[in-house]
Every structure is written in C-alpha cells, then in structure tokens.
Simulated assay, not measured.
Amino acid sequence: MIQIAVFSDVHGNLPALEVVLNDIEKRGIRQKFCLGDLVDFAPWGNEVIEKIRSLNIPCLMGNHDERIAFDIPVVPLSKHSEEETNARFVAIDHSKKHISEPNKKFLAELPFHLKLNYKTGNKHWNIQLVHSSLESNDTYLYESENDEVFNAMLERADADLMVMGHTHLSFKKQFENDTWAVNCGSVGRSKEENRLASYLVLTLDEEKITPEIVQLSYPIDETVRQIKESGIPDYYASFLKNENVLIL
C-alpha cells in the first residue's frame, strides 16, 4: 500500500497550510504534492513559498503563481462582483510588491503539470496532477461538468486518476472504467460553506485507488486578523468568515 497527499490553493494562508502539513505528518504520509496557487489573498505569501521550498514539496504553477512570477496584468472576470473585482486588484498588487525576487524566481520555474507512476504489486498506477487542466491553469472544471470532459482528459493523459484544484471546491468522480477525476479543494481559501482547509489522501494498492478528501479546521481568526492588519482588502477576511460574501 502507498499513500500520497495532494493539496492546492494555499493562497498565502500559512496557518491553514501548517494544519494540513501537520495532519499529513501525523498520518505518516511521506509523498506530498502541491498543485499550486501559493500566493494572493492572505499575508504569508513569502512564508508559504519558503515552507514549500524548505520541505522540497513538488509544486505546480497555479494561475496566481504565474501572474506574480511574470507580472501578468490582472483582467476583470465577469463572474466577480464589483466589490470582489476591486479587492482582487488590490490583493494581487500587494503580492506583486511583497513577494521577494528569489521567491518570484521559484514560482517562475515551477512545472505546469506532473505525471506520476506508482507500482503496487504487479500494478502500475498513472496519476496526472494539474492545477486546473492539461492545457490551462485557469480552466474551471466543476463536479457538474459532463463526464465526457473528464474522460477525454484522462484518456489524453493516459491516467487512472487526475487530480486538480483551482476551483476551491472538492469532489470525487469515478467513471465506468474505474478511472477517477478528483478535485482536492483548497487549503487556504475554501469556497465550500464550511471554509475548512481541504486536501486529498490517495491510497494505492494492487486492486484499486481510494481517494479521501480530508477537511480540517484551522485558526481562521488568526488569518482574518492578519489580513485586516495587512494591506490586503478586508473582503478576504469576510470571505473566510463567510460573512455575506457571494461565492463565485
């Protein structure tokens, strides 16, 4: 049996990341992977990057990582309210000013996606890791997406299971050919009603893959306090407290 932990979308929320990493450690899981979006929306962007670097956790380049690494302009999204649009501009500008140059270089060198192969007994399992899809790190694929979309991605990747993040909404979908599409949710900026820190544990044996979504409470009030004391808009503190903020 092999166990793998996969997490995504930390978004500068160091207290949430530390709770997730501690839980992984308690479970004795040594194989850890991050699907990206280390920065934006909470004030510990540098500390999160440095934690990932110090632990040598393989990490993908999320869309927010790419924007900060290469100073890509922010484009308003039609799905966002005017309040969120304004907050987003300020929050991302905060990251561009405060993420150190060595950490920007680290983000710039992250891989776009990663293919894993694990052998258990006589069985080889192919696991495809992406931030959002094979082609893009900014595609929104939800649980409601047609199965054909996920099956096409799995076939193209020649994978038994594909793990993604990006939407901040976890799900598990198993298909007729025993393949899986799984979203591991978000560590630091969950859009689920409970706002818990979410990650994925994969258990591999010779017969099957078993995905488990783990959701954990963390000192959210500390993150909220630090956001309010930083130059990041209070919108993101209210979001984490689920205080009359529209989820999109």
Rank of each mutant, 00 (worst) to 15 (best):
A159L: 05
H64R: 14
S133H: 07
T167P: 06
Y118I: 01
R88G: 04
P73N: 13
D147M: 05
F171S: 03
L169F: 07
S78V: 12
F89L: 12
A69C: 04
D160Q: 03
H64K: 12
D147K: 11
V75S: 12
M162I: 15
E145P: 00
D138P: 02
P76A: 05
A157R: 08
I92C: 05
F171R: 03
I92S: 06
V90L: 13
H124D: 08
I68Q: 07
A108W: 00
L116K: 11
A152E: 12
H166R: 07
Q128Y: 03
S81P: 09
M164E: 09
H168S: 13
A157N: 08
I99H: 06
K97Q: 14
Y140A: 13
P76L: 03
D93S: 15
N103W: 07
A91E: 07
I99R: 07
D138M: 13
P73E: 07
Y142L: 15
S132I: 01
L169H: 04
P73Q: 09
A69L: 05
H98I: 14
L141C: 12
E109S: 14
N151R: 15
E66L: 07
E84G: 02
L116S: 08
N103C: 10
F89W: 06
L129M: 03
N117P: 01
N86I: 10
M162F: 04
S170H: 08
K119G: 00
S81C: 11
N103Q: 08
H124V: 11
I68V: 15
S132V: 08
E145D: 09
V163L: 01
F150V: 04
L161E: 01
K105P: 00
E135Y: 14
D160C: 03
H166K: 07
S78M: 10
K97M: 10
E66T: 02
G121N: 01
L161G: 01
V74H: 13
A152H: 10
T139G: 00
L161N: 01
P76F: 03
M162Y: 08
L169D: 00
D65R: 09
K96V: 04
H131C: 06
N146A: 13
S81K: 11
E143M: 12
D147G: 15
M164A: 14
H166Y: 14
N126V: 06
A152I: 05
R88Y: 10
F171A: 08
L134M: 04
H80C: 12
F150Y: 15
F70I: 07
V163F: 04
F89K: 08
S81W: 09
N137Q: 11
G121Y: 06
E66Q: 11
H168L: 11
E101H: 10
A157D: 07
E82D: 03
G121D: 00
H64T: 06
P111G: 13
L129C: 07
N122M: 04
E109P: 00
F150H: 11
